[in-house]
Design a protein around this nucleic acid. Sequence first.
DNA 1: ATTCACACTTCCACTTAGTGGAAGCATAAG
DNA 2: CTTATGCTTCCACTAAGTGGAAGTGTGAAT
Lengths: 267, 267
Amino acid sequence: MESTPSTETTQPEPREKVASGQVQSVDRAIELLELMADAGGEAALSELAANTGLPLPTIHRLMRTLLSRGYVRQLPSRRYTLGPRLIRLGESAGRQLGAGARPYLTALAAELGETANLAMIDRDMAVYVAQAASRHSMRMFTEVGRRVFTHATGVGKAVLAQLPDATVLEIVARVGMPAATPQTITDPQSLLEELAKIRERGYAIDDGEQEIGVRCFAVGVPGAPTPTALSISGPSARVGYDFAETAVPVLQRTAADLAKELISPTG
Amino acid sequence: MESTPSTETTQPEPREKVASGQVQSVDRAIELLELMADAGGEAALSELAANTGLPLPTIHRLMRTLLSRGYVRQLPSRRYTLGPRLIRLGESAGRQLGAGARPYLTALAAELGETANLAMIDRDMAVYVAQAASRHSMRMFTEVGRRVFTHATGVGKAVLAQLPDATVLEIVARVGMPAATPQTITDPQSLLEELAKIRERGYAIDDGEQEIGVRCFAVGVPGAPTPTALSISGPSARVGYDFAETAVPVLQRTAADLAKELISPTG
DNA sequence: ATTCACACTTCCACTTAGTGGAAGCATAAG
DNA sequence: CTTATGCTTCCACTAAGTGGAAGTGTGAAT
């Protein structure tokens, strides 16, 4: 940790250091992959160098390792793109996350007659990891794998409600709070108040905040390894506030069952 | 593998070494991710140790790094699963691979009236990276992201035809040649002969080798960064051998256009 | 056609960052 | 409560990784 000679007033350049007990080169490799994803899946070596501040040879060596494993490809122009092997990995991850959940969502959708969704937080956004459409759903309002802002969705707010306020503020500071509809909460203070209400009443409401005409009730999945939430959503016409009275207890029961499943998966 | 005691004659323990100029710890981290994917997305630390032969502390340190980046999660049981961050990465990779291709596939499907597919090799299997369904296709015979054996599909054989025979033999040695239908080629020698024919005539035929009643014509995409193939497929009733006369030139022209696109993507 | 400039790749001496044996903790089983 | 099992931390050693400098290829400009 701090082998500081101390006498030197300035700390010896902490920079953006990797937390101790971790592997620097692996962390750097991951940073490169993330950068490429941010850049739309493609980047030149020198661009990566500019964005990381790492010397070219270091990046080149890391990229060669990723290349040999199929995690990146190299175009004849020498630019790099994310490689095909990542598809499999991502699918496996998605399957893993949604695996045990699907039966619960299907049962939930069948019982309540509306679409059930499971989402978890990934750094600053919520990702849908599983879904069961209701029989009479005209169209999907979302798909597995889609990422949504936390402040503007039922699952998002239900997830945030499980986090300390400080963490919530960090998240919205990083990604902002764009309005998806006129109903979207767009300032941090209102969001914190809303989260307090959610914690009190035990469930979140999204009333056209993500998409006009779509209402959604969501609850947290307690004790999930990654903060996770379960929701039921549908057109406001069918999904009224009286619907919540039926839906919320079922949601909460299912969330509790899901929690057990997620903690010790059937395998 | 073979930890031969032998005499001093053996080379000084090359073991399964990482090719020089690469980063050991990154390679190991990737190996861990791949192992987890193989194991269905979940594994205990000790299982990983057993499968890699690496000491526990080493694995633990690598996993901690992956954990802090969201590439793995840890269950309360302390077992590890692939993490949500991989979903995004996989999607970005898939989008990247299929991005420029979709317009070409759509045009192809429109012109020929059957489903167009683009697949590339990922180590031992072919992965579908883009697809355009024909208007009157009743159902999908495949989906983007699906992995198929190379020896039993049109795209697979068209990809193999771009590789040296030695590489082809390595692949089938690793994954075998299971029969999907009675038509599937199931021995290496016949496969090599088939590939020779494909190289000569310039396109591959899959006549019910993957699924009974489905015929498919496929061509390689020359000069793609990763060996890639383009195919058109449909029910044998509609996709006859006379159809090939129309389809193959169009396929080849599209493959050439695609090659340019893949080499210098539209930013 | 030849030169220049830029970007990627290879080389190699230095040393930091990674390694792994051994000890320390939890948690689950007996 | 005791033992067993499996995860986590510690730390001295050194192999593995790093990055400055030199080399190579590619594409643009003259």
